[in-house]
């Protein structure tokens, strides 16, 4: 017998109202305070995703939000899981996505295809959920801007090649731009387009 990969969706939230509220408040807290690392409760993730990214998708995605998955994340199980729980369209065209899931293995040229919105409708832009292994307060990235009292530092590993250059160019497009949520397995942090970043 050959080993079978499990491709079935995993369980979602036990109590949708309470658990999605917890995850949303964590994302809201992170987005309001760029660079702040916020914990999220454990929710088993399908192959390809990690628990925090999975929880964010189950909280925010639905039939109104096309999702793009980078190749290394788009396992059959992840696609089945997302379709089953959110009803969202999984698209192969990054420029159509409202949520995009990528990792350090994703080519920055793919991330650069995400929608930044238009000057008249800058909210019609993608939110990039970047899977990372570790978030810490190492002074790798220095951030200033709305939500930050003086200066915030964030260490993120690993990042796609060229990501920080892309992120700096992204913040220059304000009010257009992509908003980034870094999702490590048990925590998340955000880099909204409004943050100015300096790389150490």
């Amino acid at each position: 017998m050959t080993a079978m990969h499990n491709t079935s969706p995993l369980a979602g939230f036990q109590n949708a109202a309470a658990e999605s509220n917890h995850v949303f408040r964590a994302v809201l807290d992170a987005m309001s305070r760029p660079g702040k690392i916020v914990g999220v409760s454990d929710l088993a993730a399908p192959a390809g995703l990690n628990p925090a990214a999975n929880a964010i998708l189950l909280t925010l995605a639905d039939m109104d939000t096309p999702i793009w998955l980078a190749d290394e994340i788009a396992t059959e199980q992840a696609i089945n899981h997302i379709r089953f729980h959110t009803g969202a369209e999984v698209t192969s065209d990054p420029s159509r996505a409202l949520f995009a899931i990528a990792s350090a293995e994703t080519a920055i040229t793919e991330i650069a295809k995400l929608s930044s919105g238009t000057p008249e409708a800058p909210h019609q832009s993608a939110t990039l959920i970047l899977l990372v292994e570790d978030l810490n307060a190492a002074p790798a990235i220095q951030m200033t801007g709305p939500g930050i009292k003086t200066k915030e530092t964030l260490g993120v590993t690993p990042l796609p090649d060229g990501f920080l250059d892309w992120a700096q160019a992204n913040s220059c497009k304000f009010p257009c731009g992509v908003d980034v949520i870094f999702a490590s397995p048990a925590s998340l942090a955000a880099l909204p387009r409004s943050s100015q970043i300096e790389v150490n």
Binding site: S20, P122, H123, P146
Partner: peptide, 29 residues
């Protein structure tokens, strides 16, 4: 449902709130 609104409506409002926070002062429909 908890807090009156259905979960799909809450998701729609929550997405608008996150974009609003990312673009301070901009009115998100």
């Amino acid at each position: 449902n908890f807090a009156y609104l259905d979960e799909q409506t809450k998701r729609m409002i929550r997405r608008a709130l996150l974009k609003a926070v990312a673009i301070p002062g901009y009115q998100v429909p």
